[in-house]
């Protein structure tokens, strides 16, 4: 269980990394914390020709508060964001969800942007980005663009990032609204069977669910009570097209969407 051979590029500037991506496209992979990619390399599920290490680029290792937006650079490790003193005040939902991401021993290396780039449908950070309506900052040798979370995720471990692009940063709106997060996994730290986040909105609540569909899905609900809420959640649960696997059934996943969804909605809309 050893990786296949690859070249390893230690980028010293962002332009260098982008240039290698421009030349090698999908044969090259960015490695940041490597906490998802390395396991795939070891199992030879992934066999890139070149790895581009972007963790020596100080400009990517920054957390910036720009007005109402918190910009987290591609080099920011999950543990660093969790330890950021402003986190609880500015990004309460991230503060709730991050402790559920892997374990201390993987958060110490894994990056925030890396998790979002990996787009695992059960992962917490893509879910939170989706729930908060954040943006992904993409950059290639030719251009920069920002893509809204709802456009970024395209399916199971699939995003709209082009082969020559890397994620330079992600941004979250700094929000003061009420929010809540809940996750159910077989064991603590496992991939979520269902993870859900709720954020208060002007009209009601946005509920985002991970672990059920091929990607985290957010849905805005008006303020609903009683059976109307239950019906709306039931419809949402079915729309996510849940499936069976060794850890859970589709029905169980829908049950969790209905039950946790109701709890979370009540929590943010008291």
């Amino acid at each position: 269980m050893k990786p296949a051979a690859f070249d390893y590029v230690r980028a010293e500037t962002l332009d260098e990394a982008l240039e290698v991506l421009r030349q090698e496209g999908s044969d090259a992979r960015i490695i940041a914390g490597g906490q998802s990619l390395m396991a795939m390399l070891n199992m030879r599920l992934a066999r890139p020709r070149t790895l581009i290490d972007i963790m020596r680029l100080p400009e990517l290792a920054r957390i910036d508060a720009k007005g109402d937006t918190i910009v987290v650079g591609a080099g920011v490790r999950q543990a660093a964001l969790l330890a950021w003193p402003e986190l609880g005040r500015s990004l309460q939902l991230v503060a709730l969800a991050l402790p559920w991401t892997g374990h201390a021993q993987t958060r110490s290396r894994g990056t925030v942007c890396g998790s979002i780039a990996h787009a695992d449908p059960s992962a917490e950070l893509p879910l939170v980005l989706q729930a908060l309506g954040g943006e992904v900052h993409l950059r290639s040798a030719k251009r920069r663009r920002r893509v809204a979370a709802r456009e970024f995720f395209a399916g199971m471990m699939t995003t709209v990032r082009a082969e020559d692009e890397l994620i330079e940063a992600v941004s979250f709106p700094a929000a003061q609204q009420r929010c809540a997060f809940r996750e159910v996994a077989r064991r603590h730290g496992d991939f979520a069977i269902v993870a859900a986040a709720a954020v208060q909105t002007a009209a009601g609540v946005r509920l985002a669910v991970g672990g059920v569909a091929d990607m985290p899905v957010a849905r805005d609900f008006p303020r609903l009570e009683g059976s109307a809420l239950d019906e709306a959640l039931n419809a949402f649960a079915y729309e996510l097209d849940a499936r069976d696997d060794v850890h859970a059934t589709a029905r169980y996943r829908r049950d969790l969407v209905r039950l946790i969804g109701r709890d979370l909605v009540r929590e943010v809309l008291p």
Binding site: R10, Q35, T106, S108, R109
Partner: peptide
């Protein structure tokens, strides 16, 4: 920080 050595390349700890 604690880290998984199996998910780390030797080259990364330079």
């Amino acid at each position: 920080s604690p880290a998984r050595a199996c998910l780390t390349l030797a080259a990364q700890v330079d």
